[in-house]
Design a protein around this nucleic acid. Structure first.
Length: 115
DNA sequence: CGATTGACGTACG
DNA sequence: TCGTACGCCAATC
């Protein structure tokens, strides 16, 4: 069904934000949710990611983790190691599925895209 | 239509 | 500091 083109699907908005994440940076589901105005629905961001597998260009979902920087969604990738591998390739160190200096690599769309 | 689930987050003990 | 409980909201069973 056709609806107003002015309004973009929630999922697509998530994908756009994720694609805007600079290389070597990461963000959290909550941060994206907050940027979209659905701060209380961080889970919806996760749901959007679940559908991101078929999206093109491919969504760098590996740059999106939970608030503590843990690769909670690695299990949803092609291989659980793919996510960590990609992040390490971008210069991010990971230990026990947890990003080191996560706060340092954190990229907040609400701040970066607000300007 | 009701109950369960989920790539989360915050609050509480 | 760590573990558990609860809330949110949409999709799925």
């Amino acid at each position: 069904m056709q609806k107003s083109k002015n309004e973009i699907d929630f999922f697509e908005m998530v994908y756009q934000v994720v694609r805007l994440i600079p290389k070597g940076r990461v963000t959290s589901y909550g941060a994206i949710a907050q940027y979209l105005g659905t701060a209380r629905s961080a889970r919806m961001v996760g749901w959007a990611m679940n559908a991101a597998h078929n999206k093109k260009p491919k969504v760098p979902a590996h740059r999106v983790v939970n608030r503590i920087g843990m690769l909670s969604g690695k299990n949803h990738f092609e291989t659980p190691f793919k996510m960590q591998e990609l992040l390490e390739k971008e210069g991010i160190k990971i230990s026990k599925d947890q990003i080191k200096n996560f706060k340092k690599h954190f990229w907040n769309p609400t701040i970066e895209l607000a300007l």
